Amino acid sequence: MKLKICGMKYPENILEVGALLPDYMGFIFYEKSARYFNGTIPELIKTIKKAGVFVNESVENIINKINEHNLQAVQLHGEESVAFCQELKNKMDNKIEIIKVFSVGDDFDFEVVKPFENVCNYFLFDTKGKLPGGNGTTFDWKILKNYKSDKPFFLSGGIGLEEIAAIKNLKLPVYAIDVNSRFEIESGLKNKNLLTNFKRKLEIVNL
């Protein structure tokens, strides 16, 4: 399982966390978010993929951000349609990873993800809450037993050190673990020591 650290905001902290070599770092380009990123991403080691997080943004604006920040992945956290994902995929000539987010509650129907299988590289399952993301709570992972697709996915939603044991027991195509609010000193400012500990424990799970 790979590691994505999302909601990065401050240049010094970005470099500090980047030294841990996560597989992905996420930058939120949604103005209503407390973790809204409106700066310049400092130079990162090339193995770290930069993911832009968008909520109901236009294809044109997403492509502008991809080019401005040299993003390798796009995370769609709104109500983007299959046609929208297809348009973005076509205009980027398949050169960008598209991650479609689904907010999961107790009554979530995994049938809704099927139409997106051919237009996205990955799904991301987050906790349904008041905000598009960063609500800081986990959903009941038992519902994932209803996931029948072979499409690898990111698992998100209030994941902290306490969830490591449950992650170890997942028998599903989890491509990456996505962490954010549980490792923050304040919105957008990550605790490097906690992340170091989590990454080490996640690596043990992967053995």
Results as ranks from 00 to 15, higher is better:
Cys6Gln: 09
Pro152Ser: 02
Phe54Ser: 04
Lys199Ser: 11
Gly52Leu: 05
Ile63Gly: 01
Asp106Val: 13
Thr40Gly: 09
Phe108Ala: 12
Ile28Gln: 09
Asn94Glu: 11
Gln75Ser: 09
Lys192Arg: 14
Thr137Leu: 15
Asn56Thr: 05
Asn121Ile: 10
Met25Thr: 07
Lys190Thr: 06
Glu117Gly: 04
Asn121Glu: 04
Ser181Lys: 08
Lys32Trp: 06
Asp93Val: 11
Val53Tyr: 08
Gly18Cys: 04
Cys85Gly: 00
Leu189Met: 13
Asn38Lys: 13
Val55Ile: 04
Thr138Asp: 00
Phe110Thr: 04
Ile177Val: 12
Phe116Arg: 03
Thr138Gly: 00
Lys2Met: 00
Gly7Thr: 11
Leu195Ala: 03
Gly134Cys: 02
Met1Thr: 12
Ile96Cys: 02
Asn146Arg: 13
Gly52His: 06
Phe154Met: 06
Phe123Tyr: 11
Gly18Met: 09
Pro11Asp: 03
Phe37Ile: 08
Leu202Arg: 05
Lys201Glu: 15
Phe84Ala: 04
Phe102His: 08
Asp93Thr: 08
Tyr122Glu: 02
Val59Ser: 01
Cys120Trp: 05
Leu131Asn: 15
Phe116Val: 05
Asn67Ile: 14
Met8Glu: 02
Thr137Pro: 01
Ile45Phe: 15
Asn56Gly: 06
Glu186Cys: 11
Pro132Asp: 02
Ser103Trp: 09
Phe139Pro: 09
Thr138His: 05
Gly160Ile: 12
Lys201Arg: 13
Leu15Thr: 12
Phe154Ser: 04
Val101Tyr: 04
Lys130Gln: 06
Glu163Asp: 05
Leu76Lys: 09
Glu203Met: 14
Ser156Ile: 15
Thr138Ser: 12
Glu184Arg: 07
Lys201Met: 13
Asn38Cys: 10
Lys151Phe: 12
Asn64His: 12
Ile204Asn: 08
Asp106His: 14
Ser81His: 08
Asp150Arg: 07
His69Cys: 08
Gly7Cys: 01
Ala19Gly: 04
Lys145Ser: 07
Gln75Glu: 03
Asn64Thr: 14
Val53Met: 09
Leu21Val: 10
Phe153Met: 10
Ile204Pro: 00
Asp106Gln: 14
Thr127Asp: 02
Leu170Trp: 03
Val101His: 05
Asp109Arg: 14
Lys128Cys: 04
Leu189Arg: 13
Asn67Gly: 01
Asn193Leu: 14
Asn13Asp: 07
Phe116Ser: 01
Met1Phe: 04
Asp126Glu: 09
Lys100Asp: 07
Val82Leu: 06
Glu203Arg: 08
